[in-house]
Design a protein around this nucleic acid. Structure first.
Length: 299
DNA sequence: TACAAGCCTCGTCATTTGGG
DNA sequence: CCCAAATGACGAGGCTTGTA
């Protein structure tokens, strides 16, 4: 059996085992081990709701403690929650609003902080450049270039370019922020690796190209082209390919962001568990003290 | 040292969700 | 209703650790 086939076999079995574990808990009380969820996917039978749904139920049970203690649980509501795909950001923010000290996942940063609002939620870009038109270009670790508009929301407006020959900038490379237009009506931004990102001013959408600083022809990829006149089928095919590449790149970034949020969410839950355990312990101790006071032993 | 097993990360696809 | 974002699921590859 090859390594891949073996891994597939193992993962499949692991997933089935996990599903059995969770299913057995669906009879009202839902308890999920966070350490288990770390490597295996916690799933319901439909595979739709994993950790967030369980946690959301737990959160509601927590915040709605009085109702639960009275045995009044809206089963319809619970079904609705279980069948709804949650958002880690929303759930975490809900948790954060309950518990002070729990960091919120930032959707947007205000512009008054002096940093670009769209870049603020990114995973630590190494360099940020602003164009003369107010757009931002972030050079992330690994050579990813992200271009964002100031008006768009969060990272959603980001356009990502991956430099094929990027990597660690050569030692001693000079980084220049370029703010003027070149002779051919384009704007150029110098990035690490002795390359330039060129913004063309034509078309409905801005076009970005990665070029060598002095080269006349594009060295890298063109990510967004003007949806102007496309005549030949070859151009249509190229346009489709470009769109696909753009979609994949966006989804790649979205997946990264989603995983980051998920990690943060799990951390938040873990810290919440710790806080509640301490709280519970204190309450039990208090109860014991009160019991001792109210009913002294008659020895 | 080779191999197995487990964990982690990443990219992609499919599907759901939410906003305009 | 449409479209982009968000997210679950899956496969692949790399890394670490234990063991024969």
């Amino acid at each position: 059996m090859s390594k891949c086939a073996r891994k597939k076999y193992i993962k499949t079995n692991l997933r089935q085992m996990t599903m059995e574990t969770v299913e057995s808990q669906h009879d009202g009380s839902i308890t999920a081990s966070l350490t288990e969820s770390k490597s295996a996917h916690l799933q319901t039978q439909t595979g739709q709701n994993s950790i967030p749904a369980l946690a959301q139920v737990a959160t509601i049970a927590e915040t709605d403690e009085s109702a639960e203690s009275e045995g009044v649980i809206d089963s319809h509501k619970r079904r609705e929650i279980l069948s709804r795909r949650p958002s880690y950001r929303k759930i975490l923010n809900e948790l954060s609003s309950d518990v002070p000290g729990v960091p919120k996942i930032e959707e947007e940063k205000s512009e008054e902080e002096g940093t670009p609002p769209n870049i603020a939620t990114m995973a630590v870009p190494t360099s940020i450049y602003q164009t003369s038109t107010g757009q931002y270009i972030a050079i992330a670790q690994g050579g990813t270039i992200q271009i964002s508009n100031p008006g768009s929301d969060g990272v959603q407006g980001l356009q990502a370019l991956t430099m094929t020959n990027s990597g660690a900038p050569p030692p001693g490379a000079t980084i220049v922020q370029y703010a003027a237009q070149s002779a051919d009506g384009t704007q150029q931004f110098f990035v690490p690796g002795s390359q330039v990102v060129v913004q063309a001013a034509t078309g409905d959408m801005p076009t970005y190209q990665i070029r060598a600083p002095t080269a006349a022809l594009p060295q890298g990829v063109v990510m967004a082209a003007s949806p102007g006149s496309l005549h030949s089928s070859q151009q249509l095919a190229e346009e489709a390919t470009r769109k696909r590449e753009l979609r994949l790149m966006k989804n790649r970034e979205a997946a990264k962001e989603c995983r980051r949020r998920k990690k943060e969410y799990v951390k938040c839950l873990e810290s919440r568990v710790a806080v509640l355990e301490v709280q519970n312990k204190k309450l039990i101790e208090e109860l014991e003290t009160l019991k001792d006071i109210c009913s002294p032993k008659t020895d």
